[in-house]
């Protein structure tokens, strides 16, 4: 017998894409192509290389932005988690940033840094950084106190407690902060392509819309969502694999 959950996933996908197809045939709107039309456009874009070129362009600010956010974010997060003064000084900024609609900074970034790569990298950074910092700091603060006491009772130095106990104990949460940061970074990367200058996938979306080639527009949007979701799922799988036993093994379970 085929696995029930897999079967239901297929069924579920079939229902949704079927509904899309039917809605496209009615049609619900002049700007609503059918599922098959969109997939045809997607195949076309994939084979003539347009999609590949677009993704190289789109992923550039994303990759640079995430790399910067990861290095800066984890460093600041570690400091904030370890040092009370740093915590007092920096945490409020990131707490406010986490709650605030940072997208509102985009017009300002464009004024300061123009419409080039710098602005786009900046957008990715401000979207991704807060969650990385806050997760890292929280994870450091939540290190089980008995583990730290254990280290101290064996006369570990402060540095050893940090490198051998706190950082390994915090790494699952740091990693998931990174994953959430990448998720937010995707939002930022696409937002900046739609808002600042149309390049990459944002260019395909904007251009197809302007010439009313809605199938291509839907195809591009479909592809970026699928790409982001697959990538984030992959990261989650890696996370579960790497830190399998890391969250368990205490007295309570």
């Amino acid at each position: 017998m085929l696995n029930r959950s897999l079967l239901l996933k297929f069924l579920s996908a079939f229902i949704v894409f079927g509904a899309w197809e039917i809605a496209g045939h009615i049609p619900v709107s002049y700007a609503f192509p059918t599922f098959i039309e969109s997939m045809k456009a997607l195949a076309e874009m994939t084979f003539d290389g347009r999609l590949y070129a677009a993704y190289v362009e789109t992923l550039k600010p994303l990759a640079i932005g995430i790399a910067i956010s990861a290095v800066v974010g984890i460093t600041v997060g570690l400091w904030t988690g370890l040092n009370n003064w740093f915590d007092w000084l920096f945490s409020p900024i990131f707490i406010v940033m986490q709650a605030a609609p940072l997208a509102a900074l985009i017009p300002l970034l464009v004024m300061v840094y123009g419409i080039g790569l710098t602005s786009k990298v900046f957008v990715v950074c401000i979207m991704a950084m807060p969650v990385i910092v806050l997760n890292t700091a929280g994870a450091v603060r939540n290190t089980p106190s008995s583990l730290i006491e254990m280290g101290k009772s064996f006369q570990a130095s402060r540095l050893e407690v940090v490198t051998k106990i706190i950082i390994p104990a915090a790494s699952p949460v740091i990693f998931s902060g990174l994953r959430l940061g990448i998720s937010a970074g995707f939002i930022g990367a696409i937002l900046s392509e739609l808002k600042i200058t149309p390049t990459g996938v944002g260019d395909i979306i904007t251009f197809s819309r302007s010439i009313a080639d809605y199938a291509s527009m839907y195809a591009a949007i479909f592809s970026i969502i699928v790409l982001a979701v697959l990538f984030l799922n992959l990261l989650e799988k890696i996370e579960n694999y790497l830190f399998e036993g890391n969250v368990r093994g205490y007295a309570s379970d």
Partner: peptide, 10 residues
Amino acid sequence: SAPLTALVPV
């Protein structure tokens, strides 16, 4: 987890 910004043009 999808970047919902991409749906705004739709």
